[in-house]
Amino acid sequence: MRDNSAIIQTIGLKKYYNGESIKAIDNVDLSISRGEVVVIIGPSGSGKSTYLRSLNLLELPTDGSIIFNGVDIADKNVDINVHRQKMGMVFQHFNLFPHMTVLGNMTLAPMKLLGKTREEAEAKAMELLRRVGLENRADAYPSQLSGGQKQRIAIVRALCMEPDVMLFDEPTSALDPEMVGEVLELMKQLADEGMTMVVVTHEMGFAREVADRVIFMCDGKIAEEGTPEEIFTAPQNPRTKQFLDSIL
């Protein structure tokens, strides 16, 4: 059952509410290998966000295993904080820390958790800021940034921890349309550099272009998975067809 080539794998993952009456995630097996870009799509309420959030235990699964770098992090005796350092997460609403500057946001965790000095942390942060073309905003506060800038900062904040995998929870859903492109462009760059990514999104263009594998979730289960080509041009499951017809 264990897939040793996988960087992250879920086995029989379940998340139930109210006993067994609501099955947000229903027995999901999935294994994601190093460098792979997996895009999860599906109608709202299908459990895709819950699934993504349970990968770093922001949602506690009811049952099942999550193997990350060979360790079952769903085991209650595992110190999840250590493993979360290696899983970057990007949220729909950015969640930058409003009381800190951009640089403060990016250097807090490396300094407090990785024991880096301020100089080291700031050097790394500035290098990443230059990459995304925001080095002149290093001393700005989040409230002074546009939505697209906030999300790009949120992405590089996660990268400052040098994660093994990046989780994206609808990263462009809260953005004005003209700012979606800059964020997707950065995510595409990351994918090209070989970052392992799990992305929940409604951006089908992105899924088609960047994903190695597309997962269609429905009612807490994986209804269909395949290459973008297979899913978008020849979906097998009628639910997938119906969903794609309704949004494209």
Partner: peptide
Amino acid sequence: DHGQFEAGRSLGFNYFQTMMYIIIPQVIK
């Protein structure tokens, strides 16, 4: 906002670090 907790926790801070570095400074203000 609960997202502040989640952002702190997702970076690898434990509950008390998240409170100390991220939540309490905002609460005091």
